[in-house]
Design a protein around this nucleic acid. Structure first.
Ligand SMILES: [Zn+2]
Ligand SMILES: [Zn+2]
Ligand SMILES: [Zn+2]
Ligand SMILES: [Zn+2]
Lengths: 120, 120
DNA sequence: TACTCGAATGAGAATCATTAGCAAAAGGAG
DNA sequence: CTCCTTTTGCTAATGATTCTCATTCGAGTA
């Protein structure tokens, strides 16, 4: 149920949001347990963008590589898939700066902060 | 004292870490109050990278715009200043994708995950 | 100097997301 | 059916952060 809910979501979801989505009949303790297990085995990726709570999304090997739009107004985090050309340019930049800093780059995460369409 | 401690730090610091740095004689309630005020007036920027706690760093107009290298090995978050040409290219990409998503972009944060020189 | 009153402080309680403990329920092989 | 291991779902505990409120401070005034 967690995986299903996250597959339909358009961004990371917190435990509370997931609970609402899959029905409150599932106890929070079970939900938290499931989230911990799924994270451990690499199916879910945690995402920290708001104080005091963790949101989860499907790991990139399931959902595909993407970036995030973080709304300062309402706190919503929206997924954003860049097209290949853009992603290639971005990957170039990341490789450049990582190399310059002697850092062995494995992945990158770009977050764009601002106001979403609803909060404009 | 908070600003001084953060100016000397090489990365974002949590309230607990700051308390240790500036002396435990300052009560936590006062420290949290100061952090809230400093954030409100735009001197500090919050940084969420670990579950359940907020770290602060000097806002970019004080510390300069920069990105972060997050080491998967040791958990360290290292500041990274990209040179102007790179930063310009990155800014272009961000503006492009934000526009395409009808998102009013205010700032961007690029985090590169991987292994730092020490953890290679 | 002494008085006044609004602002700042500090100690502790309250809050909220998350974890941990534990007894009951479920599953599965023999 | 029985024994034993795993999973479940309350509930209490935790830990970072925020709230509350009585006390203290301090600038302005007489
Ligand atoms: Zn919004
Ligand atoms: Zn990318
Ligand atoms: Zn490292
Ligand atoms: Zn930084």
């Amino acid at each position: 149920m967690v995986i299903g809910a996250l597959a339909e979501a358009d961004g990371p979801r917190s435990a509370a949001e997931l609970s609402r989505a899959i029905g409150e009949s599932v106890p929070l303790s079970s939900l938290y347990r499931s989230l911990a297990v799924l994270e451990e085995v690499g199916v879910l990726a945690p995402h920290y963008s708001s104080p005091g709570l963790t949101r989860y999304e499907l790991a990139e090997w399931l959902s595909g590589h993407h970036h995030h739009l973080v709304c300062i107004g309402c706190g919503r985090v929206q997924d954003l898939e860049a097209d290949d050309a853009i992603e290639r340019r971005l990957q170039e930049i990341v490789a450049d700066v990582a190399r310059a800093a002697s850092f062995a780059e494995l992945n990158h995460a770009l977050e764009i902060e601002g106001h979403c369409a609803r909060c404009a």
